[in-house]
Write a protein that binds this DNA or RNA. Sequence first.
DNA 1: GTTCCAATTGGAA
DNA 2: GTTCCAATTGGAA
Lengths: 232, 232
Amino acid sequence: MDLTWEYDKIKAKKLIIQANKDFERIFQILDEIKPKELNADREKYADVFDGNQRTVALVNQEEDNSSDDSNYSSTDSDDSSSSIGTINDVALITNTHQKAFVPSKKQDSDKENDLIAIGSGATLIHKDKYRTVNWKSYSSATRTLLLAVFSRKILATHCLTGKCSPAFRNKPAKKCLDSKKVSDIIIEITNKFDVKENLVRSIITTKCADECKMFKMRQTNKKEIPTKTKSQ
Amino acid sequence: MDLTWEYDKIKAKKLIIQANKDFERIFQILDEIKPKELNADREKYADVFDGNQRTVALVNQEEDNSSDDSNYSSTDSDDSSSSIGTINDVALITNTHQKAFVPSKKQDSDKENDLIAIGSGATLIHKDKYRTVNWKSYSSATRTLLLAVFSRKILATHCLTGKCSPAFRNKPAKKCLDSKKVSDIIIEITNKFDVKENLVRSIITTKCADECKMFKMRQTNKKEIPTKTKSQ
DNA sequence: GTTCCAATTGGAA
DNA sequence: GTTCCAATTGGAA
């Protein structure tokens, strides 16, 4: 019985994640077909919305849809989340709601510096970078978020644990990535995708390794280029 | 308590199914009002969606259930509560349709030697071993199937590719596991779980590495034991 | 230009 | 007693 519930829980999360992806698709399509003159309005609204604009908007819209659509009412879900004893499971599903309550730390600076919170809300990235995230692939999304949160150099010189490889115990260990930021990336990804944390961590490990290779490659190129004429 | 949950579960499922139908309506409308030139993009996305088809299939199946039986809630509660019990759990995460299509090539030999086909049907394992497979975890299930198909020694001395590690190019490569059997294991696992092939392969790689360690450990133990009295 | 693959390792879980 | 973790590597994809 409990097991059944476990599977239903997983399935429910999957479906909800699928729903989120569908919303993303809808937003993409809407953006595509939207008359240009409306984009100005969009910007205005963006200012009005505090904090996690995109996510908040998404959740609100979801609730609006449900209440608009007859039976399917949001009061039902409210009831269930408050009444049921299995809190964790519900929390799992309604994470986005909690996210909406995270105090908005958006800076009121220029538009170009607009930030958006990911994960717990403690980690901020540029809105523009967030927009480029590919929400179809957890691997791609993780890598994009990594580049939004850390510089290439940091990624190249750090790793998940700060420990050296057990297979290369003589090689010096790289430094440890800011674990709070890593955690926020993982939270963001596992909220949006039906993927286990360890797989996200694995992607992060690989990304750091890849950036490390690229970093070294760039450094050797730098050393080699001066032998040729540097002027273009 | 359980009744509350049953009630909420049914309600949640209804909401999700309703949401899916709403999505379809939305997509239809969007397609209608979308400028033609954007359809090319849609085609591109189609590739991405193919990747998610397992999930989609799962959802569709659910919808089929509900439409087949007019009021899906009755089917659901019947299935989960009365007849199948734990088997229903498997049905929840597995794709029962695909499972049904796997040609059963069970041999009609003695009961003790009864074999069961996995994957494409070309690979046979003992029924008893098949029964011990834990269908809750793709990792555990993969490892059990590996031990059912290969001996510990083979696992210890072989690997997926037959190539040596790029990180240890001096070390001799292990032999290559029978790729047909490997393929059947992967097919069996990906039929039963919503997991990508690369993750199953990763588990196989790790299992071989683990068996290799254990094999070496056993060998060193064998060499050490004779110094003590071997009797018992 | 990046991402992904998989073999190896020692120790943690 | 096994499984899992993650750092490293070169090259394939």
